[in-house]
Design a protein around this nucleic acid. Structure first.
Length: 397
DNA sequence: GCTGTAGATTGTGGCGAACGTGAAC
DNA sequence: CGTTCACGTTCGCCACAATCTACAG
């Protein structure tokens, strides 16, 4: 990741006038040609292949055998054109990789941008699913399917609705103990964070190359034999198999762009998976919180079990940071969860839930998944130090 | 509020041990 | 089913400059 830290990152540039920006964008689209055909603009990035691909080549490459379909692909970062995007900045309408996101939003002004994580996808999803994935559903309806009757959601209203939910995952599920910790403050205890209604614009996951995406999807749609199937009747996961059942059961795959991510979202049964999966639109289901299996252990409950008061648990871990303490947090919750008073999650009022939710979102926005060097001088120092078996050696003066 | 000082804390990377996982038997 | 092995991943260790914090003047 730290390929060339000394070079100014593409994101690190001054504001430019619009025409310069457009010009630059044109130049950039030439720079991000598909590694496979070398012709079309690359819009996706495959980590496994370390390749930038256009939609057509992506389909070609990853449909060749079962193994390739497991490759996770993401949109290509709009800023550096070289890394898989994992963050969507709605404010700037950009999809960004971790580095670019950090550099772009590190500054106080831009840090308030509306950002959320993006997910990759696997398999060879049909075009209408790709529309979902890249958040081009509206465009998809009009441009690909030639129908706008479905109300702005090409899958909307039907049972297959919501694939993009997995890719633009804003649903603030408690994913790690960090999140739980982050949800605690002096005024809150170990709060249940409900699953709120999905954001209205959650499907908008396109970045700067929205039009090119649409164009390529349209081309792809021409090649797709049966595009006009009935979405209600269609087998929703055909050609897209691993995504819902398996991906959901393998949390690391869900966060394939976030290898350091410490928020394993584990759904340990199909029942739970479906609960999370389909109930998001109904308010009734919003009380469910899923905890990582490591936290849940044998004490897992479908509802979140939390103490009324922050008291001991909160004070014990609220200041915690660092590996050791994080480990002990895991230990703590695992071991102490039996003593949590069992409070039905619906007993938490909506205001508390909203507060917890907003804290979660804020934390999620600022979370960094990759290693970040805070002090370059220390890094330089560490690199130049003498070592014995990897350990820093004492220098005799 | 500002400045200087002293002490405490943090962060940095490479190595190897420990650990986890899956396959083979 | 239990054991062994191979392989991949995670984590602790180390020294010390940089940074932070508290306090006094």
């Amino acid at each position: 990741m730290s390929d060339s830290p000394r070079h100014p990152h593409p994101c690190f540039k001054e504001e430019t006038p619009q025409h310069e920006e457009e010009e630059e964008q044109n130049t950039r689209s030439h720079q991000r040609l598909c590694d496979f055909c070398g012709d079309l603009t690359a819009l996706l990035y495959c980590r496994a292949d370390s390749a930038r691909l256009c939609f057509a080549c992506d389909r070609e490459v990853h449909s060749t055998n079962q193994l390739f379909t497991k490759h996770t692909r993401s949109q290509l970062c709009d800023a550096c054109d070289a890394s898989p995007a994992s963050i969507l900045c709605s404010t700037e309408a950009l999809v960004l990789c971790q580095n670019c996101d950090w550099e772009r939003h590190n500054r106080s002004v831009s840090s308030i941008h509306d950002r959320r994580p993006l997910e990759g996808f696997t398999g060879c999803p049909p075009v209408f699913e790709l529309c979902s994935i890249v958040g081009a559903e509206d465009m998809g309806n009009k441009g690909l399917f030639g129908s706008d009757e479905s109300g702005g959601d090409c899958l909307g209203g039907s049972g297959v609705y919501g694939f993009s939910d997995y890719f633009v995952w804003e649903t603030p599920t408690v994913g790690s103990f960090d999140d739980l910790i982050g949800s605690m403050d002096s005024s809150h205890g170990f709060q249940a964070i409900g699953v709120p209604p999905l954001p209205k614009n959650r499907n908008t996951a396109c970045g700067r190359h929205k039009e090119e995406i649409l164009r390529q999807l349209r081309e792809l749609a021409k090649l797709e034999p049966d595009l006009n199937y009935d979405h209600e009747d269609v087998e929703p996961f055909v050609g897209f198999q691993p995504l819902v059942p398996e991906q959901f059961l393998k949390p690391r795959n869900m966060y394939t762009d976030c290898e350091h991510d410490a928020e394993p979202f584990v759904v340990t049964s199909s029942h739970e998976a479906s609960a999370f999966q389909w109930c998001s639109d109904s308010g009734e289901a919003t009380n469910q919180v899923f905890l990582p299996s490591t936290l849940l252990g044998s004490n897992r409950e479908d509802s979140c079990l939390v103490p009324d008061k922050p008291s001991d648990i909160g004070s014990g871990v609220s200041h915690a940071n660092g590996d050791h303490e994080r480990k002990s947090q895991h230990l703590m919750i695992t071991e102490t969860s039996p003593v949590f008073p069992k409070v039905a999650s619906h007993e938490f009022n909506s205001q508390e839930r909203d507060t917890a939710l907003s804290r979660y979102k804020e934390k999620k926005k600022t979370r960094r998944y990759d290693k970040h060097i805070r002090y370059e001088s220390r890094k330089a120092r560490a690199e130049s130090r003498t070592r014995i078996k990897g350990r820093f050696a004492k220098i005799d003066h």
